[in-house]
């Protein structure tokens, strides 16, 4: 796997995703966002392709500790929130868990706030057209929660409530 890290100073995942939307398509490409906490909170990006593919012509930004850690997390499959990954374009509307796993690089679905942590294969996922799995235990894992009408939905909603007060 070839992987690069980019620290473009994005304040949030929204800005990072906006930037990622302009990446040229490369088969098998996985692009992730990583949160950097501390004195300069920001979001950094990692982009990975298989060894026999060509990375988009990106210039990797100077290495810092946070960026190295993000690259290492992505490489090890233990951290990073995937925005671009094989099959993401097929994850729209409603799909069963089995269909979602078959159509994309997502390796498993894990439930929060429910009686069980593993949904049934025929459980319907309301994708809300926004599916952002995370690298956990070497697999792209979609964290989901119960949703109306017996369905489940990704934990992360596409359009969180605007923070109270337009100026904040």
């Amino acid at each position: 796997m070839k992987i690069i890290g980019l620290d473009l100073g994005h304040r949030g995942t929204r800005e990072a995703e906006h930037w990622l939307a302009h990446l040229p398509a490369v088969p098998g490409l996985v692009a992730c966002t990583h949160l950097v906490h501390g004195e300069r909170p920001r979001v950094v990006i990692t982009v990975a392709v298989a060894d026999d593919e060509t990375l988009p012509p990106l210039r990797s930004t100077p290495d810092g500790g946070a960026l190295d850690a993000a690259v290492a997390d992505h490489e090890a499959g233990r951290g990073g929130r995937a925005v671009i990954y094989p099959g993401v374009e097929k994850l729209t509307g409603e799909l069963t868990v089995a269909e979602l796993l078959a159509a994309s690089a997502i390796g498993r679905v894990r439930l929060l706030g429910a009686a069980v942590t593993e949904p049934e294969p025929d459980t319907v996922v309301d994708t809300r057209d926004f599916v952002r799995p995370q690298w956990m235990d070497g697999r792209l894992t979609l964290v989901a929660t119960p949703a109306p009408a017996g369905r489940i939905a990704p934990f992360e909603v596409p359009n969180p409530t605007p923070c109270c007060g337009a100026e904040h």
Binding site: L35, H37, P160, T161
Partner: peptide
Amino acid sequence: PGGGRGAYDFAPSAASFPAYPLESYR
């Protein structure tokens, strides 16, 4: 509104305390 009760429908950000679990956002 069909949203999150309490308008709690967020996910972790770079400003978040990293050790809080996802469950804390609901």
